[in-house]
């Protein structure tokens, strides 16, 4: 350590890195993974699927939208909650317009269907935000087959990677003068197909190879229950949350029957 003292810049940098994980407060934050258990999040998706499909009256759908906002706020995903509110309100207001024209009407009908599916999609979002280790561990506690668990964990993480890979390929092809503008891509569909989609596919298979190799090396293919670095257990709060979700889902369906 003495040698570093002569170089204050490096020393302070190293001590900063070293200080981060050893601070008891931070370590506590990492280990005690705050938030609702993944099993409850999964149950919320299942509980939301039925009402989003069966509800008929506008009022109950609105109440459900409020539940979605509350659910996102409880999980401290304020940004997602705001995005949901803005999109939902915009669609709702658009449908208040009185239309007689058929073309606009068909667009509005697609919107109304989309508005239904938005409800479950946004309830599902917190599951994707959970740390992968926690997700795998809690699913394995539910005795979900290993094949499904791994596929799920990989899928949630890969969505952003697709966009990254696409951007990397696009920028390197632009450098070669291929598809500099979006219009250029559409004008030569076969060429853009071969220069963008094929590399994307090859990259994906390479990523799959690397990912499975590194996961197997870490023992991911070993049978048995998976534990997580962060503590995974159903707390009392989780159980209460589970019951509340079940009651709300059943209540929505009952209300809908009453107000029909």
């Amino acid at each position: 350590m003495e040698s570093y003292n002569e170089l204050p810049g490096i020393h302070s940098h190293i001590s900063k890195i070293a200080a981060q994980p050893t601070s008891a407060d931070d370590l506590h934050k990492i280990i005690s993974y705050a938030g609702i258990d993944c099993r409850v999040r999964l149950f919320a998706i299942l509980a939301a699927t039925l009402p989003s499909f069966l509800l008929k009256s506008e009022i109950t759908l609105l109440i459900m939208a409020v539940f979605v906002v509350v659910w996102l706020c409880v999980l401290r995903q304020i940004r997602t909650a705001i995005i949901f509110t803005v999109i939902y309100a915009a669609f709702y207001l658009l449908q208040r317009i009185n239309v007689t024209d058929m073309a606009i009407g068909s667009i509005l009908m697609v919107l109304s269907i989309f508005r239904r599916f938005m409800l479950t999609a946004f309830i599902a979002m917190p599951l994707g935000k959970a740390p992968t280790g926690v997700l795998i561990s809690s699913l394995s506690k539910m005795h979900v087959p290993r094949q499904v668990t791994i596929a799920l964990a990989v899928m949630f993480r890969f969505m952003p990677t697709v966009a990254e890979e696409y951007n990397a390929i696009r920028s390197s092809q632009k450098f070669r003068g291929i598809g500099i503008s979006g219009w250029g891509l559409l004008r030569h569909p076969v060429r853009s197909y071969e220069t963008i989609l094929v590399p994307l596919l090859i990259r994906t298979t390479k990523i799959a190879d690397e990912l499975s190799a590194s996961a197997i090396l870490r023992g991911a293919s070993v049978e048995g229950e998976v534990s997580s670095f962060r503590t995974v257990r159903l707390t009392h709060a989780d159980c209460i949350c589970l019951i509340i979700i079940a009651i709300l889902s059943a209540g929505l369906l009952a209300l809908d029957l009453l107000w029909r």
Binding site: I150, A151, V154
Partner: peptide, 20 residues
């Protein structure tokens, strides 16, 4: 039967398909 490697491959290609 499919093993670990295949599962990862299928999951990634399925996601790619869904995004496209």
């Amino acid at each position: 039967w499919i093993g670990f490697k295949e599962i990862v491959l299928i999951a990634l290609l399925t996601v790619l398909g869904i995004v496209i």
